[in-house]
Write a protein that binds this DNA or RNA. Structure first.
Lengths: 204, 204
DNA sequence: TCGTGACTTTACCATTTGGTAAAAAAGCGG
DNA sequence: CCGCTTTTTTACCAAATGGTAAAGTCACGA
């Protein structure tokens, strides 16, 4: 009932595709799309270049596959925000999850940042169809909370964007932060919790 | 008294170097270092490739020149923070100047972001020698203000980093924001002013 | 106006890069 | 162990790319 045309992928195929994607994530996140080469990916994956092209039709398909996989998990923290929870705690929980995700998947974060920096040439559709609706929904939720007086009023859109900005920064600008602060940037959680608590706590 | 070894650059030399750097800023900021090609830069500058290599010894020298010029102006807003001014107003003024700079020089912002994302291979020395000392100095100033009770206490380092993150985001992630919000993201100034006012206003 | 040095162009190169063809080698069900 | 499919390797290729050599062309002071 579920393999009409695409045959089931063999074990070895699954394994090698995974290895390639893993290697490609390393390379793309470090050098960007154009800066990455198939040879680099091949070496990192421990496979020959033509062998990689046996599993993927080209460089772009690898990249697109990575972006697709990324979008699946990238939006989870935002999606998990619960309309029935305590507003402030929900917001802080989101900040915490997003920061943790940046820390846990810095390569994914950089892959994303690289793509956006370059004008999102291979991801514009995803933004429109995947991110936009969720973003709008959560903006509405936040606005509702504010209207009810359960969060201090600010522009919901800018609020969410600022959360992305601050949390992603720790992954994407690691090279800069490493020069300025003790590695790992301890205290980021505390700082961001303070920041958003003071911003969002209602009633002067 | 000021041309010991390097002869004075002729008018035409000045003009063409400027054109090349202008074109290179376009190209590098859009495609990153490895994604940019000399041919692209040449075309954007309206010069032939070998002609460009008459003015610069190679691709890397153009890039490094841009980064050097960038650092000169990039730190100005932070430098302008006045120890004798009103703490909160100084901080808000810094946020405003930084945001304005991101808006006015988005290419420079992206050039910088690209370089950092890639691990700052051509800029690490600048960070250490140019940015670090200024950063430390301003952290000390902010901490002083907090100790005097003139700003609400938070980690000064994370505070400054968060200002970079939020303000740069508007330039660097333009492609993403364009999908989510009305173009130009009006209201960013207002939002950031609210954010940092609530964070930093002393006394509960 | 003429020579000389500053600037440009034309014609190339060697390497790298994404990608292909086809032969060789594994796997694997029977 | 056989035959067929899946996987991997070897040997290439055309285009792109950073860069060079050397022959012009231009500008301008004497």
């Amino acid at each position: 009932m579920d393999q009409p045309t695409p045959k089931k992928p063999s074990r070895i195929q699954q394994k090698n595709r995974k290895r390639i994607l893993e290697a490609a994530l390393d390379v793309f996140s470090q050098h960007g799309y154009r800066g990455a080469t198939l040879d680099q990916i091949a070496e990192a994956a421990g496979l020959s270049k033509p062998n990689i092209l046996y599993y993927f039709s080209g460089k772009e398909e690898i990249h697109v596959t990575l972006l697709n996989r990324l979008m699946e998990t990238w939006l989870d923290p935002l999606d998990e925000m619960d309309p029935n929870g305590d507003p402030l705690q929900e917001m802080l929980g989101y900040v915490r999850r997003k920061l943790q995700m940046s820390r846990e998947f810095p390569r994914e974060s950089r892959l994303f940042a690289n793509e956006i920096l370059q004008g999102a040439p291979r991801m514009a559709p995803h933004l429109e169809s995947g991110l936009k609706p969720l973003f709008d929904r959560k903006c509405a939720l936040v606005r509702e909370w504010m209207d009810q007086g359960r969060l201090a009023p600010v522009d919901p859109g800018h609020l969410i964007v600022s959360i992305w900005a601050t949390t992603q920064h720790y992954a994407d600008f690691d090279a800069q932060l490493g020069v300025l602060m003790p590695p790992g940037a301890p205290g980021a959680e505390t700082f961001l919790e303070t920041l958003y608590t003071r911003l969002l706590t209602p009633g002067r």
